[in-house]
Nucleic acid binder design. Structure first.
Lengths: 343, 343
DNA sequence: TTGCTTTACGAAAACGTGGTAGTGTTGAAA
DNA sequence: TTTCAACACTACCACGTTTTCGTAAAGCAA
């Protein structure tokens, strides 16, 4: 049990000053070759590595970035983390992850915990509750402190910062349009409650696609799900009435539930009902039938978000203080992955 | 853009010493009430929060724990992280996550990066490559430095430390036994390559169940998959020969692939072939038919691992140095979740 | 000897905190 | 008047690093 060795210990052991050790290890020409090599050999032997915390304190940079997301057991979010982790690693950054659990309080707590020097910047996706309350003071606060923030997916216009999103509206439009192109007329929308930003946008795209094709927009065909349990009942009711011949679901969980419900009732997918889901996850790939989806590459979003954040962090180093805040909103392209649930 | 305020700044502003400010904020009786309240009011107004990095340096604790896992876009691992995050949060710890991507080098690099003071302890699951090489020097090294390590799921006997596992062998035994109980005689095993510790154990359990029931152990019925692509071919070949009437798959990805392949060939699950998978993930719940699985609660494993680690960390505080190393291996119970893929 | 430049190193400050030990002033007891 | 305690506060150190500045010794020219 030998604790990590420090500069001080090396200095004492070799009977030189701490500065001499530090300089020797950084190969400063100030130090005579003999001493330099002696120190380096000693340090190597004891496997000296500078203490990160001390470095952070000195440099006022932690080389780590904080991620705040609503859930982690969630295909999309985990792909985003993966994407972030990749570039973070590449640039020598660590990622510390906090889960808000879709709770406003936890989100605030987590941000406060990390904001006190633990990290150099945030990448985050808003919790449902935060979006519902519309209270973003915790975010403006860290931004005011000069800490860069990049938001992704679940964002808000109320905060000025870099953002990485997909064009939810256009993607939804494309999906619904493809259903219409296949001759579907009565297209249902299964979505979440309105305050989730992306849910709202996808609804807008759905509506626009219908209207552009001269199909009346029917409120009764919009099913807003708060928890997945109730979904099944609502779905089966509508199916009984044969009220629709296609469904656009805002996530794959809803989609697979619809398919299973339909199957139970003896309806065939895609013959009787075509299904398209948002978010290309693992369920869509492996369900039977496989599900046509709008792919939104979490990995790419993560990559991009991390790059934007790190650029901001490292830009601050130089021209510290008030660089004209030209925030960027990056839009990641989506595309439709056709599978068995549509024809 | 007002940077975070420090003790020093407060001291200067109020024209008192830094110690006075520090003590006032910690409500020390040494400081007169008037000064104390004045300082507290000022600190509150400027939203003073002590700097974590400085605290870490001083206290030699970071209040954060490092997680090293092979993958993050993976249902089981993400549930474990979730479990860790829960208790970490509860105890005021942050989690830093690194993905080894099943690469030995990355695992080593990540550990070195974090071991230099960034965290108070590790929770990890070995990468495939590390298990293959059997090289654990990077782990013994951090342990020798006095840093607690808890391993979970993919562990090794070569390292002495706390561990959280499931009884892979017994769980596999139970699963295979249940297939036998349902009258299946020719049971195939679809598994990974041997060096993955859990793969090996599950194979052992499978073999034992067969032998205990007087069923001959047939090597031809064991399919070792290296990448999922080739799996489909091998499977369909065996299916053609009607070589088996049940399959025990070591993960749900293999299971769902088998089911899909069988379906394509016109075979019915579970009538013609019964399927049981290890790991109760999202695919099993939503595939058609739903898949009978051995549930291994990642969340519980994460909870337990985090608790063990934090206990170790906080125990060290007191009796620093050589507490009789009585390492614990915690076994999380599993159970069979019966679904549609078995009768 | 004096003055100047190198060479080779050390002292000290800084990052932000918290605890221990000290210091100066006041008022009261001896 | 002296002594001693209580009060209210400050000085200083440590955590581990980097970096700036300083300086002693040595070498060399004048």
């Amino acid at each position: 049990m030998k604790r990590k060795i420090t500069l001080k210990q090396i200095a004492k052991e070799l009977d030189v000053s701490i500065s001499t050790v530090s300089k020797s290890l950084r190969n400063s020409l100030e130090i005579g070759e003999e001493t330099r090599l002696k120190v380096q050999a000693f340090a190597k032997f004891y496997n000296y590595k500078p203490n990160n915390i001390a470095l952070s304190l000195k440099n006022r940079k932690t080389k780590s970035i904080g991620i705040i997301i609503p859930e982690i057991v969630h295909y999309f979010f985990s792909t985003v983390i993966n994407g972030i982790e990749q570039v973070a690693n590449e640039y020598g950054y660590s990622v510390v992850i906090c889960v808000s659990d879709d709770s406003f309080d936890k989100e605030v707590l987590n941000m406060e915990m990390l904001a006190n020097g633990s990290i150099d910047g945030f990448i985050m996706s808003l919790s449902k509750e935060t979006q519902f309350k519309g209270d973003f003071h915790h975010i403006t606060e860290v931004i005011n402190q000069g800490m860069p923030v990049v938001m992704f997916d679940r964002v808000t216009n109320d905060i000025l910062c870099d953002k990485v999103i997909i064009d939810d509206k256009a993607a939804a439009y494309e999906a619904v349009q493809s259903l219409i192109d296949n001759g579907r007329k009565k297209i249902a929308l299964v979505t979440t409650v309105d305050y989730v930003s992306v849910g709202k946008l996808r609804t807008d795209g759905y509506e626009k696609a219908l209207l552009d094709n001269g199909i009346p927009f029917n409120e009764d065909l919009i099913i807003k799900i708060e928890d997945v349990e109730t979904c099944e009942i609502t779905i089966s009711q509508l199916l009984h009435e044969r009220a629709f011949d296609a469904v656009f679901a805002v996530n794959e969980l809803f989609a697979v539930t619809i398919i299973k419900t339909a199957n139970k009732m003896g309806l065939k997918v895609p013959d009787d009902i075509a299904v398209i889901a948002f978010t290309d996850g693992i369920i869509s790939k492996y369900s039977t039938p496989t599900i046509t989806t709008v792919s939104q590459s979490g990995e790419k979003m993560g990559n991009k978000a991390a790059k934007m954040l790190i650029e901001r962090i490292e830009a601050e180093e130089d021209d510290d203080e008030e660089h004209t805040e030209n925030y960027i909103t990056e839009v990641i392209e989506t595309h439709l992955i056709k599978r068995e649930s549509t024809d």
